[in-house]
Design a protein around this nucleic acid. Structure first.
Lengths: 364, 364
DNA sequence: CTGAAAGCGCTAACAT
DNA sequence: ATGTTAGCGCTTTCAG
């Protein structure tokens, strides 16, 4: 009644277990009639195929790719770009027979865990087991970076699990997939400058994981932890636009963009253009402008970044920079493949492309 | 140089492997000094903890919960409700030390696989290994249903992997998490009827996985495969609204709602209200109405379903029915727990709540 | 409280 | 082409 094992099948087919194994894996020479006999015996016994646990222990491979979510951005699932990248990654890996295991980020270094109560009861049993430290996986993919000091990353490196970094800070020894976002913002800056904008505000991704949001003062601007944010601001300046105000959001979500837009557009010296570091934020800014009765692009130009589909704005087409999300997923897939084959994958950087929509025009 | 094993740690600490095992698992009596000695030896050797592969084979448990995506709806990741449910599920399971493995749906019965070429080369090795059939997992969760005849489901049942069904059709022997959506739509219907609407159109989720979209004629209406769609339409009628036109979409996405809205609002006998089967679709309808110069709710009332956050509409608050997404995730978590403990989980159905917003009003 | 021994189910050398 | 033999690393009886 218990699940049959390969040994049962082998016995029933009158062959050895190793032969039976070959019948399933195809990893070795086997006579066609023999193979069929084994398969028939398996069908007879209702054998569902080799138990993955046994196979994994023996081969030392789990066939699992862990994906560390929410390193920097909180609820990755809510962020369209993260979701789309993940989507691409899952399909790419599935074709290699690899599964994606979601690893929700543990408490990182940014927010220290709550103080431990003095325990009078049980011995110090592992309170919350951390998947990054305990789950089986052959490779880990870090979506959207994290602090190298993160608990999860330390655990992974102790376990010798190779890590592939997507848009994260360069970490020694990790292959990285990134985009040329500095150039993308330089193009956006040049576009706005050529239109004649001089009073430009920026809405940026989080500077760190502190979940701060609001206009960043000089002090805060000196504390930008995340390369991606700094790089994008620098790109903008390279393009000829030095933002007069910088608004930092806590998450890359439309709501946050609305908030940022309302603040920036209600203050004195209203900007003639707002550069957002993501399409979601830009969409929020457009919505905020509309609610304040401003015309886009007549009264305000808005730019985004990412090139995701934004049905929310109706006919309005966001001026943005398109990054190749699907290709990024595929690139990660190839890196995983290389890693599993024992070779060192090479980091890649993809180019991005300016796409001019209907949200930018000369200032009035 | 190779990774140390538990045996190495035990030897170094001067204890037996079984004792060393206890030091890590805490699953048995062990003297505190002994435990510390083992842990010290582990730290010394840079041992990262018990190898999950060994543990899994021995205990027969992988600690992995497979989540079958896209059963019915294609790219689940793009659908806000699926994403939010998944989000809740991941956090709930993480607290139990369980990981979520994403299982992209294989080719289901709806779309038969492409015809096999006559092979003259290699023996019939498994072309594309299907994760549902090969990956290690203790339980599978079916998000948004599927056909019981699906390849993946068959594979899971052959492997004796218990399945928990979220919003799927009842499948014999599977525990199910669902919501009282019939009642929700009855409430929506009653609300619209009480406002005086009689010419109401409906925008529904896909009838099956054929990815058809457009106005459903009588014949098509007789082919609704998915319980959820039928049940929701029935609920609406119970509430006193019999839709004059039914538009079926291929995906529950804003774009599709826009498409549906444009079609329904451009035809003759324009409806005074449109009932959408999801908030994403309703948002699209609102956008379409605006683009056609119609006022919501003045010229058109619109209702959604799900109660997800929709920042896209600005100040507009959708009249909708709120379903407890987080609670659904938690319920699945509890079921998984029960299943792993060897008991039969009980199916649950959650109540939903009508939330009247600013998108419904009496017809002009 | 600790140790010895067995074996989870499979695959990979090696021998035939 | 097939069989024999050895473990992969761990947990779990069962004795002591």
């Amino acid at each position: 009644m218990a699940r049959p094992t390969l040994a049962d099948v082998a016995r029933s087919a009158g062959v050895s277990v190793s032969t039976a194994s070959l019948a399933f894996s195809g990893a070795g020479p086997i006579a066609e009639p023999t193979r069929e006999r084994v398969l028939a015996a398996a069908a007879e016994l209702d054998y569902a195929g080799p138990n993955p646990l046994g196979r994994q222990l023996r081969s030392g491979r789990s066939g699992i790719v862990g994906v560390l979510l929410g390193g920097v951005l909180g609820r990755s699932f809510r962020e369209p770009v993260a979701v789309q990248t993940l989507d691409g990654l899952v399909s790419t890996l599935a074709e290699l027979g690899l599964g994606v295991l979601l690893l929700p980020a543990g408490r990182g270094t940014g927010a220290p865990p709550p103080p431990t109560e003095t325990r009078t009861d049980a011995p110090a049993a592992a309170a919350v087991p951390n998947l990054a430290a305990t789950a089986a996986m052959d490779v880990a993919v870090l979506l959207w970076g994290a602090n190298p000091a993160d608990e999860d990353l330390i655990a992974l490196s102790r376990r010798d699990v190779p890590v592939i970094n997507v848009e994260g800070p360069a970490i020694a020894g990790n292959a990285t997939v990134s985009i040329n976002d500095r150039d993308g913002f330089a193009q956006l800056g040049a576009h706005l400058a050529s239109l004649g904008h001089t009073r430009v505000a920026a809405v940026t991704l989080p500077f760190d994981r502190s979940r701060t949001s609001g206009i960043a003062d000089a002090e805060r601007l000196g504390q930008i932890k995340l390369d991606i944010v700094r790089r994008r601001l620098e790109g903008l300046r390279e393009g000829g636009v030095d933002p007069v105000t910088v608004y930092e959001v806590a998450y890359s979500q439309v709501e946050q963009g609305v908030e940022a837009g309302k603040t920036l557009l209600s203050g004195p010296d209203r900007p003639t253009a707002i550069v957002a570091q993501s399409d979601a934020l830009a969409a929020g800014v457009v919505i905020a402008a509309r609610e304040l009765g401003l015309d886009v692009p007549g009264d305000l130009s808005v730019t985004g970044f990412d090139g995701i589909d934004l049905p929310w704005l109706g006919e309005t087409v966001l001026t943005t920079v398109v990054q190749p999300l699907a290709e990024k997923g595929a690139a990660v897939g190839r890196m995983v493949e290389a890693l599993l084959a024992g070779s060192e994958p090479e980091s890649v950087t993809f180019d991005v492309e300016l796409r001019i929509g209907t949200t930018t025009a000369p200032p009035r």
